[in-house]
Amino acid sequence: MALNTPQITPTKKITVRAIGEELPRGDYQRCPQCDMLFSLPEINSHQSAYCPRCQAKIRDGRDWSLTRLAAMAFTMLLLMPFAWGEPLLHIWLLGIRIDANVMQGIWQMTKQGDAITGSMVFFCVIGAPLILVTSIAYLWFGNRLGMNLRPVLLMLERLKEWVMLDIYLVGIGVASIKVQDYAHIQAGVGLFSFVALVILTTVTLSHLNVEELWERFYPQRPATRRDEKLRVCLGCHFTGYPDQRGRCPRCHIPLRLRRRHSLQKCWAALLASIVLLLPANLLPISIIYLNGGRQEDTILSGIMSLASSNIAVAGIVFIASILVPFTKVIVMFTLLLSIHFKCQQGLRTRILLLRMVTWIGRWSMLDLFVISLTMSLINRDQILAFTMGPAAFYFGAAVILTILAVEWLDSRLLWDAHESGNARFDD
């Protein structure tokens, strides 16, 4: 018995066209964080690309023209004298008006014999932002004059995390709450300039795509075929072959399989920071003279006294001054041990922890910024005066060393310790 099946006739004509040209192939790229070699397709503007294995951002879609970056830099340069030299806060102490600005706080630190601690604050609040705007201006002028731009481009990517104007702005709020127990506070004209400078700096850093600047100024022929001998440069993120001198053909720094002496430098910085954190938390970090009496505060006791007036601000200072430094030390110690013992479990967790400490590390400088600003506000000789204690130097040095330890660690070593050939990683 035959089955009668109805015929289905399409209502619209289906047209099949042959592909007349070869589909576009992607360029081969190595991930600078996990060293995976993959094919990167062509990316349009405002599109980002991520590593298929570790999800690290390979290409950032946010990109401004150099002219727009230069305009932002010149605007920031105009704001800087007002943000640093004009009063941020006014207080009335014992019937006398006192003005506080950024430069005055750094000068008070240096004047009291601790120039190293003052230079830490100076670099993060004044030096690094000033280098940022002058570097962008150098790129703008240098591109037109045919100057060598490689050193500036190499420095810009590392400079971003040292620009800490946003953290200093939080420190202004913390210092205001600490001082309000002794005097009446009012915002100064410099505060508005400083807030504007923070906003412009944040926007500029978020749109400063150094890798795209490398592509514009020093374009290189990408690798179009897969080759395990391809290496990625950690300076400019170019994937290719080393030249005859073993250097990256684009930025001219040595092109090595792994960062040289990464573990040794990381261990040295980490152990030194552990040693410095002990006096930083045991010795007094601030000293207040009130009517001839002397009151010393460690980091913890200062947080407890701050909690009596504002528990939320005390929580912020606790996280930045105690929780973050010790968390960074514990995480980095764990990561280094996992590399030495070739741990194969929990790779995803370790990668996330490394990215976390990379982002939060700079916030530990908050305590030094609060001390710097408070020193310029309260300084009335023996009637009422505020000065920093010996722990300030140890704390600042420990924070900087932990930042350097994270920067010096080559994250690809975590993958080397893991089993080879993993296309995915999980716990």
Rank of each mutant, 00 (worst) to 15 (best):
R350K: 11
S39C: 08
A268W: 02
F123G: 01
M109N: 05
S309M: 09
F341Y: 12
L283Y: 04
L145Q: 06
I274E: 12
T349M: 15
V179M: 02
W408I: 04
Y394K: 01
S364M: 00
V329R: 01
G173E: 01
G95R: 08
L23G: 09
R30K: 08
V189R: 12
V121Q: 09
R226Y: 14
L335F: 06
R225G: 12
A397C: 05
R424L: 11
I98Q: 02
P24C: 07
T117D: 03
P10V: 07
S176D: 05
T110Y: 01
M155N: 15
E157M: 09
P151E: 02
L384P: 00
T5C: 10
D114R: 06
A223V: 12
L413R: 09
F393E: 10
M332T: 06
E22T: 08
M1Y: 00
F141R: 01
W64L: 14
Q33M: 10
M72R: 01
M72A: 04
Y394G: 05
D35Y: 05
T117R: 02
R231D: 09
Q7V: 03
G389S: 02
R294M: 04
D27R: 10
L139Y: 03
A183L: 02
V232T: 13
D63M: 15
W408Q: 04
H252S: 07
M103K: 06
F82W: 05
I199D: 02
D381M: 02
Y394H: 09
D166Q: 15
A100V: 09
Q55G: 10
L153D: 00
S364Q: 00
W267V: 12
S119M: 01
L282F: 15
I58F: 05
I383W: 09
Y394T: 02
Y28E: 08
V198L: 14
D410W: 00
M375H: 03
A71V: 10
A397N: 04
G190K: 01
S206I: 12
G85P: 03
R25M: 07
E22M: 08
I8N: 09
R424F: 13
I316V: 14
I116T: 11
A272W: 02
H252G: 03
G361C: 08
T204S: 14
T334Q: 13
K111H: 12
L79G: 03
L23A: 07
L377K: 00
L93I: 04
V357L: 10
P87A: 04
A392K: 02
I131F: 01
Q344M: 13
L409Y: 08
G346W: 14
G389W: 00
N379I: 03
L255C: 08
I106S: 03
R216E: 13
G173R: 01
R424T: 05
V399D: 03
L283R: 10
D243M: 11
V331C: 13
D60R: 07
E228W: 14
L263P: 06
D114Q: 05
A314L: 10
F386L: 02
G315E: 04
A49V: 07
N143T: 14
S420K: 10
N4S: 11
W162G: 01
M388L: 03
E22V: 08
K160S: 08
L145P: 02
P10C: 06
I131S: 06
G26L: 08
Q7G: 09
R380V: 02
C251A: 00
N422I: 11
V232G: 15
S39Y: 11
V133A: 02
E22D: 04
D426L: 04
I299P: 05
D181V: 01
P151G: 03
I167L: 03
T402F: 09
A71F: 06
Y138Q: 02
D426G: 09
F386D: 00
L283V: 09
Q244D: 12
G190M: 01
V317E: 01
L404Y: 04
G26S: 09
S262K: 04
P222D: 14
Q108G: 14
D367A: 00
L323R: 00
T204F: 06
E22S: 08
T110I: 04
I303K: 00
A73W: 13
I400M: 08
L354T: 12
C251R: 00
A187E: 09
T11P: 08
D297E: 02
Y50H: 15
H46A: 07
Q344F: 13
E407M: 14
I311Y: 13
R97F: 03
G346M: 13
I8H: 08
L40C: 07
E161V: 14
L337K: 13
I288V: 11
D114W: 08
T5E: 08
S301D: 01
K265C: 05
R97H: 06
Q244M: 13
C31S: 00
C248R: 01
Q295M: 05
Y138S: 06
I58Y: 05
W363K: 04
V198I: 13
T349C: 11
A391C: 05
K13I: 06
D297Q: 03
W107T: 13
F217S: 15
S376D: 10
A187P: 14
I319P: 08
I316C: 15
P249I: 12
R59D: 05
K328C: 00
Y182H: 07
L300F: 15
R216L: 11
F369T: 04
